[in-house]
Design a protein around this nucleic acid. Structure first.
Length: 707
RNA sequence: GGUCGCUUAGCUCAGUUGGUUAGAGCGUUCGGCUUACAUCCGAAAGGUCGGGGGUUCGAGUCCCUCAGCGACCACCA
């Protein structure tokens, strides 16, 4: 044995060994209890960041359960990450002086496909470097044909059962990226903006968006507001910029009499609250801003101006006409922005596909409340339920090419939609016309990934389909044991997987949810490119080894809490890996000692050691089983280093050196069992020692933790 | 405004159902290259466990309250 554990001499070798010998391969084994985890598929086109290394929790669970004798499956995958990827790709195009508009749909799609396929192996090889016991033969890509097929079948089933519908509604639209988003993909940003007070017929009202004036279709006041009571239900005449127009005054509870003047202009086509108000009062929509972010033909001389330019000009002109009475420059409010490009989101009316969320979410709430799905750490249960309660109908249409195209065709004669599970319909279901045009849009990536847990398992059998849930592999491993992921995607993914999983399979997609926190820098700040504090997991790995990186993310942390990562910690854990190695080396080097009778002193020490170890093992198993992995690891660390090495070995050192075989065997027995318990956390060093002790062809993964 | 979390040694953090002199990693001081390991060993300094109140034989651990910090969400004409 080397004097020190050198990770680079072992890691690649050991991983290939595990893979080649099929240790990560899952198969149906009726005699064993299944334990399955689906890896949250990392973005196929991007290298891993430190957050991905947190999936080490999954590896810990997988390896631990394997050592308990279960049939384990950890299924890897890659995410096409629709908009994310298209966004990155467009940035690359930009650098070459090109844009998405320079290519037709097919060409652009193919270019992105090639780009993603080229990058995908990077992410995959990084998962291997982390030592993850993934069953690579079963890997899936979110755009694999068979996965897409399942997504289509789910979509059709939803449509058939009235849980997906087509409608024109106000959606969040990014005029720069040219696509709509769901509610989750917008970020509200605090902003100080002028609040303009303007004359409006007999009223005065306040607005931050004077340029939407052309889209006003009502004026609203609070029903109990004495100042304006006499106007309610009446039409008023307003001097505008283009013309003088008449507009109705409505009364609505949503108006806050204390804000501004207590009068609101209602612009249903460009404001979510106004849209709701308009629905309540049956007021028409008038769209004056287009999907290009410019004012349209209904705005006369302002046509063609971008929103901000239009605002300036409108204000200028209103001033000229003496219609602006006051400007509050210190008004702060939050504006919706695109989570990706940061530009202001424009609420616009658009015809899209929506998931009718309430029935699905209500069902999901029941499942969580009843404990059909357990959440760890427990405090996230509340958050999950809150999210599920808040969900509104979900816009799943995206105006991007990089994604799964929606299997819906519109009839050019009668305008009716025909939804299929993928194949082009021969004729319109309503009027039989054969002139059908497929929807240009693609699915929200999260719509397809909400189906990931059953789609990945179903598709392991070639001819499986949603209507026939009898495939063996699926039946054996579904529902999966645990869904492990970062708490920040609870609403995006976990909540929706529960909804869709239960809808499609009538079973929960997983029995347990385990959530980990975010990795922050040493000062506790979020890691971001702009702050320059991003830690590349591969660099840490190169420097200190995979075991050290993994352990650094677990050691003395709290499950679900954010983790401050510092290189110091990796150093400490590299040292621990070396300690594990050297304890082994000490025992190994003394193995050739001559037989010798034990004396009383060592007998007592050995029995103390065994007692202590028995307690430790009980405690560790209890902690592992209750998802307190960090505590289990801390305990093992403390025991091996400060009890086993610093105390027991030191006490018994002379005995060992002088060849007391009983003492050596006693120590070795405990040591090897500790290795077994440590293996899920630090798989490389433990396996390396195991091989040194038992031979190159042996693996610690053949061992079982016994009670 | 809502929900959740955090406040323990110089720094970063553990401390599971309340129980003996409160721990770790890194750092600091002193002493050791002892043939497993200097990626080490031994010793030491360093904490009124955010403030206050309560429950209890006993509280860092439970309850109330105050303060500070943070995250997420909602509203915003």
């Amino acid at each position: 044995m080397n004097k020190a554990f050198i990770p680079s001499e072992w890691e690649e070798k050991l991983y290939s060994f595990w893979e080649q010998k099929g240790y990560f391969k899952a198969q149906i084994n009726k005699d064993k209890q299944p334990f399955s985890i689906i890896l949250p598929p990392p973005n196929a086109n991007a290298p891993l960041h430190l957050g991905h290394a947190m999936y080490v929790y999954e590896d810990i669970m997988i390896r631990y359960n394997k050592l308990l004798g279960k049939e384990v499956l950890w299924l890897p995958g890659a995410d096409h990450a629709g908009f994310e990827t298209q966004f990155v790709f467009e940035k690359n195009l930009q650098k070459q002086g090109k844009s998405r508009f320079d290519y037709d749909r097919e060409t652009l799609f193919t270019m992105i496909w090639d780009f993603v396929m080229e990058n995908r192996p990077i992410m995959e090889s990084q998962l291997k470097r982390l030592g993850f016991a993934l069953d690579w033969e079963k890997k899936k890509f979110t755009m694999d044909d068979d996965i897409v097929k399942i997504v289509y079948e789910t979509f059709k089933k939803l449509h058939d059962e009235g849980l997906v519908y087509r409608d024109t509604k106000l959606v969040n639209f990014c005029t720069h990226d040219g696509t709509s988003f769901s509610d989750l993909e917008i970020i509200y940003r605090e902003e100080t903006a002028p609040l303009y007070y303007m004359k409006y017929g007999p009223f005065e009202l306040a607005t931050v968006r004077p340029e939407t004036k052309f889209g006003d279709t009502a004026v609203a006041v609070h029903p109990d507001d004495r100042r304006y009571k006499k106007w309610i239900g009446k039409e008023i005449e307003v001097t505008g910029l283009i013309e003088t127009f008449k507009i109705r005054v409505i009364a609505d509870e949503a108006v806050d009499p204390k804000f501004g003047t207590g009068v609101v202009k209602v612009t249903p086509a460009h404001d979510f609250n106004d849209y709701e108000m308009a629905k309540r009062h049956n007021i028409p929509l008038k769209q004056v801003i287009g999907f290009d972010g410019r004012l349209n033909e209904l705005t006369g001389p302002y046509k063609g101006l971008k929103v901000l330019a239009a605002r300036e000009k409108v204000v200028e002109d209103l001033k000229q006409k003496g219609l602006i009475t006051k400007i509050d420059e210190s008004y702060t409010h939050s504006v919706p922005t695109c989570y990706k490009c940061g530009r202001v989101i424009e609420p616009l009316p658009k015809e899209q596909w929506f998931v009718k969320v309430r029935p699905l979410a209500d069902q999901a709430i029941k499942l969580v409340e009843k404990g059909e799905i357990n959440i760890y750490p427990r405090r996230f249960k509340r958050g999950l339920i809150d999210w599920l309660k808040k969900f509104h109908d979900w816009n799943i249409s995206r105006q991007i090419v990089w994604g799964i195209r929606i299997p819906a065709w519109r009839c050019s004669k009668c305008n009716e939609w025909t939804v299929t599970s993928g194949e082009k319909p021969t004729n319109c279901l309503k009027c039989q016309s054969k002139e059908l045009v497929q929807d240009e849009d693609t699915f929200d990536t999260w719509f397809s990934s909400s189906q990931w847990s059953y789609a990945t398992l179903l598709t392991q059998d070639h001819h499986s389909q949603l209507s026939n849930l009898n495939s063996q592999f699926y039946t054996y491993f579904y529902p999966t044991a645990v869904m492990e992921t970062g708490y920040e995607i609870l609403p995006w993914w976990v909540a929706r997987m529960i909804m869709m999983g239960y809808f499609a399979t009538n079973k929960v997609p997983f029995k347990n949810v385990f959530l980990h926190g975010m990795v922050r820098d040493k000062q506790g700040r979020k890691m971001s490119k702009s702050k320059g504090n991003v830690v590349n997991p591969m660099e840490v790995l190169d420097k200190y080894g995979a075991d050290a990186l993994r352990a650094a993310l677990i050691f003395q942390t709290t499950e679900g809490g954010d983790i401050t990562f510092s290189e110091d910690k990796a150093v400490g854990m590299r040292n621990f890996a070396n300690k594990i190695w050297n304890v082994g080396r000490f025992l190994y080097l003394n193995r050739n000692g001559k037989m010798k009778e034990e004396n009383g002193k060592s007998k007592k020490k050995l029995s103390d050691l065994h007692k202590e170890f028995f307690q430790l093992k009980k405690k560790s198993i209890k902690n592992m089983d209750s998802y307190n992995f960090s505590l289990a690891f801390d305990t093992l660390f403390e025991f091996l280093w400060h009890r086993f090495a610093d105390f027991y070995i030191e006490e018994l050192k002379e005995e060992v050196r002088s060849g007391n075989i009983k003492v050596l065997e006693g120590l070795e027995e405990v040591y090897l069992q500790v290795l077994l318990m440590l293996h899920p956390f630090m798989p490389f060093v433990t396996e390396a020692v195991w091989k040194e002790f038992h031979g190159e062809e042996k693996s610690i993964l053949d061992m079982r933790i016994e009670f």
